[in-house]
C-alpha cells in the first residue's frame, strides 16, 4: 500500500516489529480457544501448558518493546512510521492482557470440574468465546493489512459481547433466584469467566483503535 523506504532496512525493521505482534496475537488467540475448551473438559496437563504460554507471550512483549526502542533510536521515525513504531508497544500490552484473561479462564476450569456445570450458561460462554476469537482474528488481519474498515467492524462488535455478558449475568441471577440449581459456585465462576471474555472483547477493540490510529493519526479514544 505504501511506498517503500529509501533505507531498505527501515522497512525490514518495521516488518519484524509487525511479525512479532502477529506471532503474539496468534499465540493468545490459541490460548483463548484452548482455555475455553478447559471449561467443559478439564485437563490439568493442558491447563499447565496454557499457563506456560504466558512466558512466551511476555517474552514477545519485551521483544516488541526493545525493537521499537531501537527503531526510534536508529531511525527517528516520523508521522505514519512513528505510529507504526509506537502502536505495537500498546498492542503488545493489550495482547498480553488478553493472555492473562485466557489464563484466568483456564484456571477456573479446574474449579468448574469439581461440580456439575449449568450447560445453558456454559453454552453462552462458548458463544462469547467464539465471538471474541472472531474479533481478535479480524483485528489481527486488520493490523496486518492496515484495514481501517475491518478495524471499525471489530469495534462495532464490542456491544454484542457486552450484551452476551449481560444476558449471562441475568441468566445466572434467574437460576440462583429460582434455586433450580445447587451449583452456585460454578455459576459464580462462570460469571467471572464471562467477565474475562467481556474484557478480551474490550482489548480487541482497543487494538482496533490503534489500527485506526496508525493509518489516520486520529486517536478515537480521545474523540469519544
Amino acid at each position: 500500500m505504501e511506498n517503500t523506504h529509501i533505507v531498505k532496512k527501515f522497512d525490514k525493521n518495521l516488518d519484524k516489529l509487525k511479525a512479532r505482534i502477529l506471532e503474539m496475537g496468534e499465540l493468545v488467540l490459541h490460548q483463548v480457544e484452548d482455555a475455553t475448551a478447559m471449561l467443559g473438559a478439564f485437563d490439568p496437563v493442558e491447563v499447565d501448558r496454557i499457563l506456560q504460554l504466558d512466558l512466551t507471550v511476555n517474552g514477545l512483549h519485551k521483544e516488541v518493546h526493545d525493537r521499537a526502542e531501537l527503531l526510534i533510536t536508529r531511525r527517528q521515525p516520523l508521522a505514519v512510521d512513528l505510529r507504526q513504531t509506537l502502536a505495537p508497544i500498546n498492542i503488545a500490552g493489550e495482547l498480553e492482557r488478553i493472555g492473562d484473561h485466557a489464563k484466568s479462564t483456564a484456571k477456573r476450569g479446574r474449579i468448574l470440574c469439581r461440580s456439575s456445570t449449568e450447560e445453558t450458561v456454559l453454552e453462552m460462554i462458548r458463544q462469547m468465546s467464539t465471538k471474541v476469537q472472531e474479533m481478535l482474528f479480524d483485528v489481527l488481519i486488520a493490523y496486518t493489512n492496515d484495514d481501517i474498515e475491518l478495524a471499525a467492524k471489530v469495534r462495532m462488535q464490542d456491544k454484542e459481547v457486552d450484551t452476551l455478558n449481560k444476558n449471562l449475568v441475568k441468566s445466572v441471577i434467574n437460576i440462583l433466584d429460582s434455586q433450580a440449581s445447587g451449583n452456585s459456585e460454578s455459576l459464580i465462576q462462570l460469571t467471572l469467566v464471562s467477565r474475562n471474555f467481556e474484557r478480551i472483547g474490550d482489548h480487541a477493540c482497543n487494538i482496533a483503535r490503534y489500527v485506526h490510529q496508525i493509518s489516520t493519526g486520529e486517536d478515537l479514544k480521545a474523540s469519544i
Binding site: E2, N3, T4, H5, I6, V7, F10, P77, L78, A79, V80, D81, L82, T216, G217
Partner: peptide
C-alpha cells in the same frame, strides 16, 4: 506536517520513502 501530513509527497519526504 510531521504527524499527519495531508499530501503524499510530504509524507514520502519526511518518512524517507521513495515517492
Amino acid at each position: 506536517i510531521f504527524t499527519t501530513p495531508k499530501d503524499e509527497r510530504t509524507q514520502n519526504y519526511i518518512t524517507g520513502r521513495i515517492g
